[in-house]
Write a protein that binds this DNA or RNA. Structure first.
Length: 872
RNA sequence: ACUGGUGUGCCCAAAUUGGUAAAGGGACUUGACUUAAAAUCAAGGAUUUGUGGGUUCGAAUCCCACCACCAGUACCA
């Protein structure tokens, strides 16, 4: 990184002095305080509030928060009553892991981390209304999280169940399905084991959660992820009789029309019928298979590359379509928790069934021909005939036949499971629940809230499914109004609980009687713009929608959906440089290196010699960029460059504090917005920030001369050059449009064009002020300082947003492009609004064009105000 | 494997409805200023939009195929 000789700049643009000064001013004057004001249109801009981890703010936070801040500031100036709050999602694993690691109490580390985050956030000049700050670990806050839990419980949406859960021994807790991939990626083990757990019935809202996605202004990719997660499928449940048994075997299939091809059945190993139907000679094999698969983790069971396994139960089912007896197997590729936990297998149509049939040498009956027409799919005796039909009609006919013959019915299934809602950790909301001596759960009344989290010095996970709160002996005991003794629930709620409704608490953070005043809720909701990372697609964003819908059904909120418009900022990546070496320590070109996955992790090897290669990370200060390639400063060899997610282990993180110190918050804000489109992933480039910093210095020099006085070129009544005036109005128009569409990079580039043009010219005060207004949402500190230096009262951020004069942005002369056979031949300045004939005439008469019109003109294409193309 | 996204000078990128591709920033080169460097100012080059085909008077933009990278999902019957 280039080192700035600070002394030089400080004389001119002293961001280190300016920025804290205005941050203090805004805070002390409550500049961004917002209250319900029905005379103005409201605008609710929300960030995904952070987990205040020990690592502090990173540049990814800065990106999203700057974007919302720009919108908030712009909307305020444009006449909106803006809600822009910030708070802390401070319960949960990251904070607690840190506390466990350092041995400090989570309450202390959380307080320290929050203070640090807040300081960092404030040093960015973000326009939050700090009167509305919330913290999910505050008892005044989690009291209402518990209250919402009670409402869910009352509606029957919270229940205790003994279910196979994702137990993570490393973290000492169970995890929700949605959380598993992330933790596994971090290297934690996750096992399946049955445990008694609190569940929330999110499945009851599956259809609504799916349907209502359509009306949301969200990125299509994110909606698609939620749709996939909900995983709606239509099909049928079918009953198969079991030979020599009264009980029926019910399966779920999306293709009831393939039933004639069903040549065997597979049950999940845990299916309750397995014990009943297994014949004595198969018992041993079945039991041992059941045991084997119960030990396997979910990951092992779903390992795709693995060969199919299973075993025969000895029992036979009867295919209702054709009366055939088909064997019943068990196999762990069938999941108990989906559908009925049993399937009919059609090896001709289904890849997985086919593979299984191959492995165990089971029958494969063809049911469609090469043209996808049904064959072998009719039974004249019972009137079930599919041959000759198309797929759609086949499915409909099959369902019809099944329903008429009482052996099945149409059925819709969802992949989404109920939300596993308890954690065996200390740092979370306690459940407002107690157990009587029979072990029955009983919800506490609303008056007994909050159930406080007890102070404990030993809050570490026990390493067993027993939660840490079980060690809080005094707290555990609860005496009911009936005088009986109860024991408290020792599990706590998961991280996601608090973030399910924080956007509502912001609207009325100090309310002691309600989680939120309905009047305030009605005024502010829904959230008009919500910006955050895409990693929350199927976690926070689906949980919060679920709670919101429950609250809507209870009449507690006025909208069906919480977040009308959602936008994902792209991740900011960091460059990593790698060097490959062979056994002898010789450098190998990265072009010859390949990667493969082994049990021990990823291994690099030489693509020809196959020998294993050592990989060295090279620190950024040791590399030299040249012509798009990267070389090692000393070794003088070419390195591999990649833009990767920033992480400590890769050493490619950027600390925003350092950037703020060296270049200022305005530069950091501007750079992150200028890097590229907000939604795109983009690598951090050290030299890039110098460009925007230079731009801000240029702005400064436009106003202030070298002695620190107001520049003489700014005159109250200077007459603006016509072209300058036009550019100014074009800039107002473009910046306004770009901010509306979150295209900050192009807005900044337009401002650069304007500032370059204004340099060295005489400008009037109005023009100077307009420029500052346009800049102020993006780089608020410098705009504020210059606004004051112009002799104005603070603040520029409270001024009215400039409007462009439509008459001034219209060009009265246009550049006419003349093409011959599609090739560019001339560009001519002509008056705007000429007719097609006039344009053609002018084009024909041009000398340069004439020389190319050597053949007969067959056709002339004229686009008014744009171009003329002669086709020969 | 499937789904979604991306691919434009050395790098990050811009390009209303198809209409001069490369605005803006960085890097680089040169000049001015300077004892010198930095900073500042001024000037400058490159090119056919991942590859191949198609539609069109005209394609970065629309269609087809392929390649590369990124993200998500992963036996959900």
């Amino acid at each position: 990184m280039a080192i700035l000789s600070k002394g030089m700049y400080n004389m001119r643009y002293d961001f280190q002095k300016i920025e804290p000064k205005w941050q203090k001013h805004w805070l002390e004057n409550d500049t961004f305080k917002s209250e319900v004001d029905k005379s103005k249109p409201k605008y609710y801009v929300l960030d995904m509030f952070p987990y205040p981890s020990g690592a502090g703010l990173h540049v990814g936070h800065v990106e999203g928060y700057t974007a919302t801040d720009i919108v908030a500031r712009y909307k305020r100036m444009a006449g909106f009553n803006v809600m822009h709050p910030m708070g802390w999602d401070a319960f949960g694993l990251p904070a607690e892991q840190y506390a466990v690691k350092t041995g400090q109490h989570p309450r202390e580390t959380t307080a320290t981390n929050v203070a640090n985050f807040k300081k960092q956030i404030q040093s960015l000049g973000l326009s939050y209304d700090w009167n509305r700050e919330v913290n999910t670990t505050d008892e005044k806050y989690y009291r209402w999280t518990q209250w919402i839990f009670l409402q869910l419980h009352k509606k029957g949406l919270a229940y205790v169940a003994e279910v196979p859960v994702n137990w993570c021994p490393d973290l000492g807790t169970v995890l929700a399905n949605e959380e598993v991939p992330e933790q596994v990626a971090k290297g934690y083990r996750v096992e399946r084991r049955p445990m008694r757990q609190w569940m929330l019935k999110i499945t009851a809202y599956a259809e609504e959660l799916l349907q209502d996605l359509d009306d949301l202004d969200w990125p299509e990719s994110l909606k698609e992820m939620q749709r996939n997660w909900i995983g709606k499928s239509k099909g049928a449940e079918i009953d198969f009789a079991i030979k020599n048994h009264d009980e029926k075997l019910r399966v779920y299939t999306t293709r009831p029309d393939t039933i004639f091809g069903a040549t065997f059945m597979v049950l999940a190993p845990e299916h309750p019928l397995v014990e009943k139907v297994t014949t004595s000679d198969c018992k041993e094999a079945v039991c041992s298979y059941q045991e084997q698969s119960s030990l396997k983790s979910e990951l092992e069971r779903t390992e795709l590359s693995k060969k199919k396994t299973g075993t025969f139960t000895g029992a036979y089912a009867i295919n209702p379509a054709n009366g055939q007896e088909i064997p019943i197997w068990i196999a762990d590729y069938v999941l108990v928790s989906y559908g009925t936990g049993a399937i009919m297998c059609v090896p001709h149509g289904d890849e997985r069934d086919h593979e299984f049939a191959e492995v165990f040498d089971l029958d494969i009956v063809a049911i469609t021909d090469d043209n996808e027409r049904y064959i072998n799919s009719e039974n004249k005796e019972n009137g079930f005939v599919l041959n000759g039909l198309e797929k759609e009609a086949g499915i409909a006919t099959a369902i019809e036949w099944l329903e008429k013959n009482n052996c099945g019915e149409a059925k819709t299934n969802y992949k989404i499971r109920d939300w596993l809602f308890s954690r065996q950790r200390y740092w979370g909301e306690p459940f407002p629940v107690v157990y009587n001596d029979k072990g029955e759960a009983q919800a506490l009344s609303e008056e007994e809230l909050p159930v406080l989290l007890p102070e404990m010095s030993d809050f570490k996970p026990t390493g067993t499914p027993e939660a840490p709160l079980s060690k809080a002996t005094e707290w555990l005991e609860y005496e009911g109004k009936d005088g009986k003794k109860y024991v408290r629930e020792t599990n706590t709620m998961p991280q996601w609980a608090g973030s399910c409704w924080y956007y509502l608490r912001f609207l009325d953070p100090d309310n002691e009687d309600k989680f939120c005043d309905p009047e305030k809720e009605k005024y502010w909701m829904p959230v008009d713009l919500y910006i955050g990372g895409a990693e929350h697609a199927v976690l926070h964003l689906i949980y919060a929608r679920f709670w919101h819908k429950v609250l809507y059904d209870l009449g507690c909120v006025s909208t069906k959906e919480p977040f009308q418009k959602l936008f994902n900022q792209g991740m900011i990546l960091g460059y990593t440089y790698r060097n490959y070496k062979n056994d002898k320590g010789e450098v190998v070109s990265h072009n010859d290196a390949k990667w493969k996955v082994e049990d021990s992790g990823q291994i690099a090897y030489h693509k020809e010699t196959k020998e294993e290669l050592k990989v060295e990370l090279v620190a950024p200060h040791e590399v030299v960029w040249k012509d798009g390639k990267v070389y090692h400063e000393e070794l003088d060899c070419e390195l591999e460059v990649k833009a990767e997610k920033m992480s400590k282990s890769l050493g490619n993180t950027i600390n925003p504090d350092v950037i703020i110190k060296d270049y200022g918050a305005d530069s950091l804000r501007l750079y992150e917005m200028f890097m590229g489109p907000l939604e795109q992933e983009k690598p951090w480039n050290d030299t890039g920030i110098e460009g925007v910093h230079r731009f801000l210095r240029k702005v400064w020099l436009l106003f202030i001369d070298r002695e620190g006085n107001l520049n003489e070129s700014i005159k109250d009544d200077a007459k603006l050059d016509k072209n300058v005036e036009k550019l100014l109005h074009k800039t107002i128009e473009k910046v306004t449009n770009d901010l509306e569409k979150l295209r900050f990079n192009t807005a900044i580039s337009q401002l650069m064009i304007l500032v370059n043009e204004l340099g060295g010219k005489e400008i009037n005060k109005e023009c100077a002020e307009t420029l500052l207004k346009l800049i102020s949402p993006l780089a608020p500190h410098i705009a504020e300082e210059l606004w004051a230096l112009l002799g104005n009262d603070p603040c520029v951020c409270e001024q009215e947003w400039p409007k462009h004069d439509p008459k001034l942005v219209v060009d009265d002369e246009i550049t006419l492009v003349v093409q011959v056979n599609g090739k560019f031949r001339a560009s001519l300045k002509v008056a705007k609004g000429l007719s097609k004939d006039e344009l053609e005439k002018i084009a024909r008469e041009d000398e340069k064009v004439k020389t190319h019109l050597d053949k007969e003109v067959r056709r002339v294409i004229v686009v008014p105000n744009k171009l003329v193309n002669f086709v020969l």
